[in-house]
Amino acid sequence: MTEDRPAALAVEGVVAAVGPLKILQDVSLVVNAGEAVAVLGANGAGKTTLLRTIAGLNIPREGTIRLHGEAIEGLPAHRITRAGIGHVPSGRELFPRLSVGDHLELGGRFSLPARRALLRSRVLDMFAVLRERIGQRAGTLSGGEQQMLAIARALMTDPRVLLLDEPSMGLAPKIVLSVFETFPILREQGVAILLAEQSLSLGLAAADRAYVMDHGRIVLSGTAAELASDSRVADTYLGR
């Protein structure tokens, strides 16, 4: 990271709660432009809450969240989306009775027409199967197609940072790989990726760097290669 250009996404000292429960305690992380970073952790470590907090679906009690240097914490979620944070939420959150085409249209709602057309042809090139299903309702798609549509919808918002919440959930390994294969294309386009992933091997394979979360804190961080050979990572997962 060069000093004159701020990180794509900088989370600093974020404390967040869901209801009365404190889920995130003093979480800090950085994602640079064009970088893919994974947040790893067991179920319940706070990964989803972290992503939801960045996306504005949960308001942090303390701390700052900056998108290319601009503070976005506390903004309403739809404003954060328009500011350039794409969120592929856990459970995909598609509109089951709307068509694939409608999803792309809604995702691109706030882009200029020319830009929208470019984004649309890009995502349809990336996920060719969606082009065949363009008039089909999202509820009738297979799990893999639904995941691709959720990513495509988020990409239609023209994000500078893409948050992906366990895109591997419920998918066959082969399909997961085809989803992860799109990352290099996105990064070439300057999109920074923050991936929450429960599977250690998948997360480390897809990312340059990773943070390991446990009980709402970041306990380890490093490059994917460093963490892959660090025995403490597995210990965190096993609760030792």
Partner: peptide, 10 residues
């Protein structure tokens, strides 16, 4: 159909 999904569309 999905408030969260709608928010993620802006």
């Amino acid at each position: 159909q999905s408030p969260t999904g709608a928010l993620s569309c802006g």
